[in-house]
């Protein structure tokens, strides 16, 4: 009699493994920024339409994450940070990740077109294409500027949210895009500084590998200095206001100060304290972006009480 317990492990994935393919942590950022983009737009959207739209934007983002995991399975296997992902760990077959990514991309784009409009759906389709093809397949392994250009994919969600409400693109949504676009390089390069040899072992041409860690420190400072004016200029548009402006000034002073601290250190100092400054800068970068978008939201939420906006 065959004992079912003697069967070999099949490698069958659980539901959670498929959820993990959609990169839920990245998705949370997509949901938040898309929601802010939608809510701060000057056109009111039915709550059900808003909910469905944000959900399909998140699904589109998740689908591009699955496509990324399908293509990058080989380098994910090498990097410590990504070894536990469903494809490199063998729980999900690469073809399954590809199938799921393509199917969800189609569903997300079509459903967003039906729920909102074709501009938002077109932007979502372009975002998925940009992240999966331009960034993952083409640029990630061919240029140290991969993070800069790839950052555009992560910067689209507030623009899509804005398009859901207004049906178009305007200076405010472009500036929200620019804020995330300029924020991405210092955020990821700080990570690359303290993740040490991970990217190098995987053969990904991160700036730390191709141009050295000194150049990376210079770039972090440069991009942080360029980011500050973008954050402040956004504050004088229709989505900004005194609350946002106050918040942006404080956050950018701290961020530039952090970048300056990273810039003036050398590897020996960083090594000595276990990359304390770099790790602190990386953690703060998450708070930085969250609070900027929370600032936009606060301006809109307080407007009915005569407090938000200029």
């Amino acid at each position: 009699m065959t004992d079912i317990r003697s069967f070999e492990q099949t490698g069958e994935a659980g539901f959670g493994d498929y959820v993990a393919l959609l990169k839920p942590r990245v998705m949370s950022l997509v949901v938040f920024t898309a929601m802010v983009g939608l809510l701060v737009a000057p056109v009111a959207v039915h709550p059900m339409v808003a909910f469905a739209s944000v959900l399909f934007i998140a699904l589109g983002g998740g689908a591009s994450g699955a496509l990324n995991m399908w293509w990058d399975a080989d380098i994910d296997r090498v990097m410590k940070r990504t070894q536990g992902r469903p494809v490199p760990s063998g729980r999900v077959a690469p073809e399954e990740a590809l199938g799921l990514g393509l199917a969800l991309s189609g569903i997300a784009v079509v459903m967003l077109a039906l729920a909102a409009n074709f501009v938002a759906a077109g932007l979502l389709a372009f975002t998925i294409f940009f992240y999966a093809v331009i960034y993952t397949i083409w640029l990630k392994r061919s240029t140290p500027q991969n993070i800069v250009i790839g950052g555009a994919a992560g910067a689209f969600p507030p623009m899509i949210g804005w398009a859901v409400a207004t049906g178009g693109v305007s200076i405010e949504s472009v500036l929200m895009f620019a804020l995330i676009f300029m924020w991405t390089p210092p955020h990821f390069w700080a990570l690359a500084l303290f993740m040490r040899n991970d990217y190098g072992n995987a053969g990904v041409p991160m700036l730390t590998v191709t141009h050295g860690r000194r150049v990376t420190r210079n770039h972090i400072l440069g991009y942080t200095l360029a980011l500050a004016p973008v954050a402040l200029v956004t504050g004088i548009t229709s989505i900004g206001g005194p609350i946002y402006m106050g918040l942006a000034i404080v956050l950018n002073v701290i961020f530039v100060l952090g970048a300056w601290r990273i810039w003036r250190r050398d590897e020996d100092q960083a090594e000595a304290d276990g990359f304390r400054v770099e790790k602190k800068f990386f953690r703060f970068s998450l708070i930085y972006l969250f609070l900027h978008f929370a600032g936009f939201l606060a301006e809109t939420a307080l407007r009915p009480y005569g407090l938000g906006g200029w």
């Binding site: 079912i4 317990r5 069967f7 492990q9 994935a13 539901f15 498929y18």
Partner: peptide
């Protein structure tokens, strides 16, 4: 008797089907 024993694989398969539902 043995066929009724729940294997870890069954739990995962059920979890996946339940999730899809």
């Amino acid at each position: 008797m043995a066929i009724t024993i729940e294997h870890e694989m069954h739990k995962r398969r059920f979890g996946r089907n339940f999730g899809v539902a």
